[in-house]
């Protein structure tokens, strides 16, 4: 039997109980999607539609949902490895760049030389012994990216990893991400509210509704990856989407 390589998400309902005076909140409802092995899917939706909640459910940080999530099986039969790039980089300030990355690795992974390759690919070699507080936000996000790829994830979760960067820096990091992903393919769930970013990165865009989040549309991005560097191409695709679904994109 071929190994299961796809990621299957079927969440019937995910709600947060009421706390104090805040009422209970229904975050996700009837959310079904399947990702093929090494597929790059962008989950696009307005703020507060439950995108981060979805990632936390996949990562196993939140198990209080109704439904099932089946992760792809790791090739060696081990528990599937999840890499997570959070919205803020979440580097431990008391550990250097290298120590932060090695914290999440197994001893074999530390010895494998993979970290050196990734640090070289991301231009971080000079900063390997620096403490995070001395780095710019852009550099910190690179480290978070390296950390997530260094665990050789079967599923990579990314939660708006390039927000609050200036556009040229964000753009450089997007290209960097695509380059690393091309060399080390893995299934990616990338959450964003930026349609241009989604068009640039994704094989497929899954559009979520405002809360409770459910899948509104499933849109393959059928532009050759080489053509997506052209702003005009991305813009054209975006305008076409908006023309086809005027109501959906008011918030994006």
């Amino acid at each position: 039997m071929a190994p299961v390589t796809h990621l299957e998400i079927d969440i019937r309902q995910k709600s947060y109980p009421h706390v104090g005076r805040a009422p209970a909140h229904l975050a996700l409802e009837s959310l079904k999607m399947t990702l093929q092995g090494s597929e790059f899917v962008c989950v696009l939706g307005p703020s507060g539609c439950g995108k981060t909640t979805l990632l936390n459910c996949i990562a196993g940080l939140d198990e209080t949902y109704e439904g099932q999530i089946a992760l792809p099986l790791a090739p060696n039969g081990h528990r599937p490895v999840v890499g997570y790039v959070f919205q803020n980089p979440r580097l431990l300030p008391w550990r250097t760049v290298l120590e932060n990355i090695e914290l999440v690795l197994s001893p074999e992974q530390v010895r494998s030389g993979l970290v050196d390759e990734l640090l070289a690919a991301t231009g971080l070699e000079a900063f390997r012994h620096a403490y995070p507080e001395r780095l710019s936000l852009g550099l910190e996000r690179r480290v978070a990216l390296v950390r997530a790829f260094a665990v050789q994830p079967d599923v990579l979760l990314m939660d708006e990893p390039f927000v609050s960067l200036d556009e040229p820096t964000a753009q450089r990091l997007r290209l960097l991400l695509l380059q690393i992903w091309r060399d080390r393919p893995t299934t990616v769930v990338f959450v964003t509210h930026d349609m241009r970013e989604a068009i640039q990165l994704a094989d497929r865009i899954v559009l979520l509704s405002p809360a409770p989040g459910t899948v509104l549309a499933d849109i393959p991005v059928d532009i050759a990856r080489g053509d997506r560097r052209e702003a005009a191409v991305v813009e054209g695709f975006r305008n076409q989407l908006i023309r086809e679904n005027p109501a959906l994109y008011r918030e994006l």
Binding site: N56, A59, L61
Partner: peptide, 24 residues
Amino acid sequence: PDYMELAQSFHIGSGKTLRHVILP
């Protein structure tokens, strides 16, 4: 809690979590 989620999602184990995430 951000750091605890980090430790949990990367499955670094309770020993490493205590020593490198909680104690510092």
